[in-house]
């Protein structure tokens, strides 16, 4: 501790390598894409300055708005799905439950798995002809409920979101469990002595005491879902008919499939500000000074 007071120099030296790497690989590319976003460039040719016309084109593209809408859907599904589910499971596992360790490992497993593995496995589960879900429905005689989960535009987004939720519940579960274990025993004991029921203790003591952690989890969740790309790319390629296309995927297609590097950069700039805005709104509305 007193080392920090003594020499600012040591701190700077310590931070320098990480800061340098971060600047080169994160900050500089972001600034670069600001620059590219004003150009017309196919990646090979000479760049041509076109001002804000990329942005004009972008805001007029209905496909971009569709991808933004889909992205918001993913954000909402993740926040409303991942956080509450993770919280409930964490509260359960925090009690002296038999086999809590086992369930904790099971819950965390999807986080460790590669996204490609998850995507391919869930694609098989969702398959309309011989997928697990439809087979199950058929076996119990609910054939009328079977769907072409990923192939039907009205179901594909929901199906993808369920997978996204499943993938990340474990992550927040661990975060919440850590926070729960930090609640001092005495506080809970005092509540018990005062005759508070379990329900009241949870709502009045436990949740408020980990509220900060919940906000962090929500922000992680939002920024994570705004960046979501790999899972959808492998599962559906954004299809069928753009029904699961999110902003990052839209950017990827415009840039690399249509060879519009300038336009693609404009898209990423918009995603950047969109994310900033969303996180700003959320932190403001949840009433904490996170950023």
């Amino acid at each position: 501790m007193h080392l920090a007071k003594k020499s600012k120099f040591a701190i700077i030296i310590g931070l320098l390598p990480a800061l340098l790497l971060y600047t080169i690989f994160a900050i500089v590319p972001i600034l670069q894409s600001f620059y590219y976003s004003l150009m017309e460039w196919n990646g090979f040719s000479e760049m041509k300055f076109v001002g804000l016309s990329n942005f004009k084109m972008l805001f007029q593209d209905p496909l971009f708005w569709k991808s933004a809408k889909n992205n918001l859907f993913v954000v909402i599904a993740s926040v409303l799905g991942q956080i509450p589910i993770a919280l409930v499971i964490a509260l359960l596992l925090n009690r002296k439950l038999k086999g809590a360790k086992f369930f904790r490992t099971i819950g965390f497993l999807p986080v460790v798995l590669s996204t490609v593995v998850i995507s391919l496995t869930w694609s098989l589960i969702y398959n309309t002809k011989n997928g697990l879900i439809n087979e199950l429905l058929r076996t119990v005689g609910l054939e009328s409920l079977t769907q072409n989960w990923l192939g039907d535009t009205s179901w594909s987004m929901i199906a993808v979101c369920i997978t996204v939720i499943w993938q990340f519940v474990g992550l927040y579960l661990i975060i919440f469990l850590a926070a729960l274990q930090n609640i001092p025993e005495e506080v809970l004991e005092a509540a018990k002595i005062d005759g508070a029921s379990e329900w009241v203790t949870t709502w009045k003591i436990t949740i408020p005491m980990i509220w900060d952690t919940i906000i962090v989890a929500v922000i992680l969740c939002i920024s994570g879902s705004l960046r979501t790309f790999d899972l959808i790319y492998v599962m559906t390629h954004g299809g069928p008919a753009h029904s699961t296309e999110v902003m990052a995927l839209y950017m990827f297609n415009e840039t690399f499939n249509k060879l519009q590097y300038g336009y693609g950069s404009a898209v990423s700039v918009v995603i950047f500000f969109f994310s900033l805005l969303l996180i700003f709104i959320v932190t403001k509305s949840m009433g904490k000074k996170m950023i």
Partner: peptide, 20 residues
């Protein structure tokens, strides 16, 4: 061109879904 390819690829998929 890559762009036209993208349009027709996605469009044909929409046709199979009855959306175009």
């Amino acid at each position: 061109t890559p762009e036209l390819t993208d349009v027709i690829n996605n469009g044909l998929q929409s046709i199979t879904l009855g959306e175009k």
